[in-house]
């Protein structure tokens, strides 16, 4: 996925002179996850550059660059460290178009590694997507495969609205099925790791059907797409798995069509449970598919605690928690 992201950035830097990349360690060094490796050398220091360790400044400067007419792609090193930039994102980037009646826009894409499963502890594991989906004016995108990462990132950069682009760092190097004690397979063995060369984009607001099924709809995104897929296969459940890809705008049509077909719905995310994005999904499914439902909508999520270090695999919403929820829904 790292190479796919690097490829998308490379293509956008070469296609559009207004695209610039900035962030902590993204320049000469190429990023702590190597996502921007080689780009400064190729495009120069005024297109790809390092910044002070100041997230408010990174986002704030990007808003100003957007107002000038550039298309900045700032990186926040970990989603856990996006909070100092929240005022600039929520009060400024998200509202610029609205409050100026379209005179000024913030066509920026904030890239940030997110999610757990890497022994990152409290401040290298968080999934703060619900903070952003709650903000009118922001789009939130989360890929789960190298193919999607490239296409969605290109679409995000081209989009004239501010996009929060969360990259699940657990699956930077290979898909993760939730079995932390087994060796991880690299992406090259996975069918979705085939990334076409050159330019392509995947429209925002469209979910991907990971697999079709009739027994239950499972809504997931990011790392959890691979975990639920593995659990469904293992249990032999005829599940229909939707990878939402974009949380705002949400592909409500795909969700409705699937739940109306299966009559059952499980929502899975790593983020903490209370007021997480799963609550919004659950409410939407209940409101819009109520008469098709044959069981209560269930949510499998992280617990309502800060992300722990040593008890990571007790915290992570893995195969046991997901399996129990599937059984509960199917038995209802």
């Amino acid at each position: 996925m790292i190479e796919a992201i690097n490829d998308a950035l490379d293509i956008m830097l070469s296609h559009d002179p207004s695209v610039i990349i900035m962030g902590e360690d993204v320049g000469y060094f190429g990023g702590v996850f190597r996502c921007t490796a080689g780009l400064q050398e190729k495009y120069g220091k005024t297109r790809v550059f390092d910044t002070p360790i100041n997230e408010c400044g990174i986002i704030g400067a990007a808003v100003g660059m957007g107002a000038y007419g550039l298309r900045p792609v700032p990186e926040i090193q970990f989603a856990d460290y996006i909070y100092p930039g929240l005022d600039q994102l929520i009060s400024e980037a998200a509202r610029l178009r609205y409050r100026s009646a379209g005179e000024f826009i913030a066509p920026m894409t904030v890239r940030s590694p997110f999610g757990g499963g890497i022994f990152g502890g409290q401040t290298h594991s968080q999934s703060p997507e619900a903070l952003f989906t709650h903000v009118a004016g922001l789009k939130t995108v989360i890929p789960s495969t190298p193919h999607d990462a490239k296409g969605l990132l290109i679409a995000s950069i081209e989009d004239d609205d501010p996009v929060i682009f969360f990259e699940p760092k657990r699956i930077y190097n290979g898909p993760f099925n939730g079995y932390y004690d087994k060796p991880v397979e690299p992406w090259k063995k996975h069918p979705d790791s085939k990334v076409p060369e050159g330019y392509y984009s995947i429209p925002l607001g469209k979910a991907r059907t990971v697999r079709e099924g009739d027994a239950i709809t499972i809504l997931a995104y990011g790392t959890m797409v691979h975990v639920v897929d593995a659990v469904a296969r293992e249990k032999g459940v005829d599940a229909e798995i939707l990878d939402l890809r974009t949380l705002v705008p949400l592909d409500i049509e795909a969700i409705e069509a699937s739940v109306e077909k299966t009559g059952r719905c499980l929502i899975v995310h790593e983020a903490t449970r209370t007021s997480g994005f799963g609550a919004e999904l659950s409410a939407l499914v209940t409101e819009r598919c109520f008469y098709h439902l044959e069981a209560p909508v269930e949510r499998v999520t992280g617990f309502d605690t800060p992300y722990p270090h040593s008890l990571e695999w007790a915290y992570f919403p893995g195969p046991v928690r997901i399996g129990e929820a599937i059984d509960k829904i199917l038995e209802a």
Binding site: G57, G60, A61, A62, G64, Y68
Partner: peptide
């Protein structure tokens, strides 16, 4: 910081 970003641009 937005003004600074504009000036940088």
């Amino acid at each position: 910081p937005q003004a600074v970003g504009w000036a940088m641009a």
